[in-house]
Design a protein around this nucleic acid. Structure first.
Lengths: 154, 154
DNA sequence: ATAGATGCAAAAATTTTGCAAGGTG
DNA sequence: CACCTTGCAAAATTTTTGCATCTAT
């Protein structure tokens, strides 16, 4: 099977896993759409169009696997669907956060954190890490509110 | 029906809603356990013990309602269950965030944000608000990692 | 009295699991 | 060739909905 990112292939092999067709397809979806957050359903439909043999179970199993490996990250915006996006550790994905409209579910990606903010977060993570003996791997920041459209509609 | 928090009752009446027994019981669960995050199931079991007549549908409908009113807030820690906790706007609930172990699901509440951090967030919210015409109501901050126990077990 | 709210049970929707068959290293 | 993965379909879970009945106001 044609492999994707060689680093990922290597990590998989090291842990006795295999780079299969299904996994490569799903990885490509994320790599080719950085900054997008897909639900399992969406991944299924896209992957299925590429290779109609791929089933739901494989999608779920692959998403779990990639999340465990830290390649993608789970997100939930409150509509009941789990979403996934590529981790910022991967392929120069810029650090970003989300603005979620609690009315219509619209999500805006927000990247303009200043250096000041980044430093602060680094500091907080370090403190938390020590205080609670937690090995912190990343953080999720969401601002919740009402978007332009929904605000006007009232 | 004996009402709980008068402010909430007032708001409900203003919007043509009613303070029912089920709603009062559920509100009490949150008010009496500030800082805890309940799943719908947990709320159901507690409420059901207080009044066995309460059904699942009512719990879900009430949780949605209270979330819409901004009294409780939806949270998801990645285990597939939606959780709810009282909003910090309510009953002097201190502002806090969460440390989530991605291995065992354990959640630690974290409250020690400094003034510096609070100011920064206020500033960021204001900027975002203007830039994206979003009416920001609150934010969710989660740090994800591996807790003490899970880290050692490996 | 009257609209809003509830409870029950059935339906939807999402995610997980078991197992034989297939693919990767 | 060994054994990790997959696909399928069935099961488990969580959440939503319809409708007759009940109940705050």
């Amino acid at each position: 099977m044609r492999r994707g990112n060689p680093w990922i292939c290597k990590r998989m092999r090291e842990e006795g896993m295999r780079m299969t067709q299904a996994r490569a397809i799903i990885l490509n979806i994320f790599a080719g759409n950085q900054g997008e957050h897909f639900s399992a359903q969406e991944i299924f439909f896209i992957a299925h169009r590429i290779n109609p043999g791929i089933g739901f179970a494989t999608v779920y199993r692959t998403l779990d696997l990639l999340a465990q490996m830290g390649i993608i990250q789970k997100l939930e915006f409150g509509d009941g669907l789990t979403r996934y996006e590529m981790t910022e550790a991967m392929e120069n994905v810029p650090h970003h956060h989300h603005l979620v409209c609690t009315e219509c579910g619209k999500v805006i990606d927000y990247t303009e954190f200043t250096d000041e903010e980044k430093e602060l977060f680094a500091k907080v993570e370090k403190e938390l890490s020590e205080k609670y003996k937690f090995k912190i791997k990343n953080h999720i920041i969401q601002f919740c509110g009402i978007c332009n459209n929904c605000g006007e509609r009232r």
